[in-house]
Design a protein around this nucleic acid. Structure first.
Lengths: 167, 167
DNA sequence: TGTAGACATTTGTTGGCGCAAATATCCGCA
DNA sequence: TGCGGATATTTGCGCCAACAAATGTCTACA
């Protein structure tokens, strides 16, 4: 049998395909609101953070971008008035990227349709049990491939962002 | 409760995190072999195709790249001798990207370590039942978000999925 | 047969991102 | 106090991919 048909490759390809497909589905709603998907992720992570702000380095760790990538993302978002840089009082090297009111408003404006997108293409397709199992499996993999991606958050429990199953 | 902590966002984030994490894990082995991940995907898809070749457009559809993106990927691979362009006899507009012997050899050289990577970070973490269930769920989502990504292979028509209101 | 429109591919242009270097600041230690 | 290495951010540079336009070819239809 052809080694290129190995089920492991198929599994990996399927995961990649699903991820790419979902991104593509989300894109229209986000860009209709003037946000690229990396913009959205950035603004969302800021919105979820204490005081709606995050140090540049932590933002880089959470998003997986390089620090220079974060510099430029925040440049764009700041130019558009959605985010502003705030000096860190305890460390003059660092600065926060902080969500502005306009940024918060933009985020809340896209959120409903974005959630509907996720629902209609992903979570809504699955039964409660199936979704729970799926997420549990994802967490199991996540814990291996990304041992520590919670920079700037409470860093507390090993269960990550305290997500306890479906709804 | 904060709408930014919606479990649907968490689910989506988890999926993205797992995908990114897995890609990052695979990268070293591939680039040690002189292949970017898109190079690898391209070569793999060619290797799996009849006659180890694919029309440029079909390659674009399978990989999700634009056609111009495929042109340049194939440019690079052809420069490195892993792929060659072959004129299509039935349609003089089209050309095939065909895997060379060197390309095939390169692919087979990375494959073992790549499979081990997948095994150790993904499939090997799960019981048979868990993996089966996980893949079934992925397929369910895939069938919705990507109704037809099988260009160049046997065309499988899935249930039509009209454009739900993404805005 | 001839023409209009669709299609496959390539090329020019633009924007985003990573890497490495530069700058400023912090911290430990003598 | 003063020095050396670590850390946070930004900037210079190059690569990669998408979009749009250009070119060549196919196909349907009159």
């Amino acid at each position: 049998m052809n080694p290129l048909d190995d089920p492991r490759l198929t599994a990996m390809g399927l995961l990649a395909e699903v991820h790419a497909g979902l991104i593509a589905r989300m894109q229209p709603a986000l860009s209709a609101s003037g946000l690229s998907d990396i913009d959205f992720e950035t603004v969302l992570r800021l919105g979820r953070s204490p005081c709606q702000r995050l140090r540049m380095t932590d933002l880089a760790a959470q998003t997986g971008l390089s620090t220079s990538g974060v510099t430029r993302v925040v440049d764009r978002l700041e130019r558009d008035g959605l985010v502003e840089r705030v000096a860190c009082s305890s460390d003059r090297r660092a600065s926060y990227a902080a969500l502005t009111d306009a940024g918060r408003a933009r985020l809340e404006a896209v959120l409903p349709v974005h959630l509907r997108d996720i629902e209609s293409c992903f979570t809504g397709l699955l039964s409660d049990d199936e979704l729970t199992a799926f997420l549990a499996t994802l967490r199991k993999i996540r814990d291996v491939v990304r041992p520590c991606a919670t920079a700037g958050t409470a860093m507390a429990r090993t269960t990550g962002e305290g997500s306890q199953g479906s709804q």
